[in-house]
């Protein structure tokens, strides 16, 4: 799959933003006033900014509102609705916390549920696609949810919680890579089933339909970026999970240094998740590539 920057920015930032909103809704940390303003500004900036970025890849962004209508069948539509509701409910909760010094716990809990539902629906957009075996796995929602929770805890300054959640997210990431590497082969789809000619012998793509490229090849067949996949996995894992864990676990007396380390941990985690998300797209093989003798 073509790793479109808009979708990578969207899933990375909104995942973290909704993760932070989920913790803020729980009262972790239980903040009001200016401190709450900073937390909520960060969360809304990432969640909302991510959603804005996702509209950049639309062919007709001005019609984006129509995407809220088909919640009965479409995960993308459900995601849109969940995101709007989560932002609205947490917006109200933020108003109370920032301007009235009130933490409306029930509203916060509802916001937490909606924030997590948004991340889950995002993950299901990818998970539902049988055409991309590497995404069509139960581990895909696990990746999105565990990353969002770990990042959210990190941003919310929940040190102990984020250590546990980072360990879980890191383990999920490794399991996802391991299972994903076998996904296409174990899906049973190959050029033989794609053409229906497999029973007659070994099928080879002899001539493509056109000498030039096309939308399908640009969108679904991304071979170049996979060359450095292993190196990028190491970078993603080191930045996203190992380095933040080390920074959190180092015994630190000085509060300033502790905050500085936390900030570095957040930035490293952000870069690591973005790299992992880039791989999520670049490594995903769409079965349509088989018609072109590619994957």
């Amino acid at each position: 799959m073509h790793p479109a920057p808009s979708v990578i920015i969207f899933t990375t930032l909104s995942g973290l933003g909704f993760g932070l909103l989920a913790f803020l809704g729980l009262g972790l940390p239980d903040v009001t006033g200016w401190v709450a303003f900073v937390f909520f500004a960060l969360a809304f900036g990432m969640a909302g900014g991510g959603l804005m970025a996702s509209t950049f890849h639309l062919g007709r962004p001005e019609r984006a509102w129509r995407a809220l209508t088909q919640w009965r069948s479409s995960w993308l539509s459900r995601e849109g609705i969940a995101a709007v509701l989560a932002l609205a409910v947490m917006g109200l909760y933020a108003l109370g916390a920032v301007f009235m010094g009130e933490t409306w716990r029930l509203l916060g809990l509802l916001g937490t549920a909606l924030s997590l539902a948004t991340v889950f629906t995002t993950s299901m957009i990818y998970t539902q696609l049988k055409t991309i075996p590497r995404w069509n796995m139960k581990l895909t929602p696990a990746v999105f949810m565990s990353f969002s929770l770990a990042g959210g805890a990190l941003l919310a300054g929940q040190t102990n919680l984020s250590i546990v959640l980072l360990l879980i997210a890191g383990a999920v990431q490794l399991a996802y890579w391991k299972q994903g590497d076998q996904a296409l082969a174990s899906s049973g789809t190959d050029i033989g089933t794609a053409t229906g000619l497999g029973a007659r012998g070994a099928v080879r793509a002899f001539e493509p339909p056109h000498t030039g490229s096309n939308y399908l090849l640009r969108e679904f067949v991304h071979v170049v970026g996979r060359k450095h996949a292993q190196k990028l996995r190491v970078i993603a894992f080191a930045l996203g999970f190992a380095l933040p864990l080390i920074l959190l676990l180092l015994p630190m007396e000085d509060v300033m240094v502790k905050h500085l380390f936390a900030a570095v941990a957040v930035l490293a985690h952000l870069a690591g998740v973005a790299t992992s998300r880039w791989l999520f797209f670049a490594e995903a093989e769409h079965v349509v590539g088989l018609y072109y003798g590619k994957r």
């Binding site: 799959m1 890849h57 062919g59 007709r60 129509r66 939308y215 969108e219 679904f220 349509v288 018609y291």
Partner: peptide, 24 residues
């Protein structure tokens, strides 16, 4: 009504759908 999100093309195993770059 199409917003050109491309998800239908992603879901098609046969490559039957193509996003028109001029029309979006």
């Amino acid at each position: 009504h199409c917003i050109g999100c491309g998800l239908c093309a992603w879901s098609c195993p046969y490559g039957a759908r193509e996003l028109d770059l001029a029309e979006g």
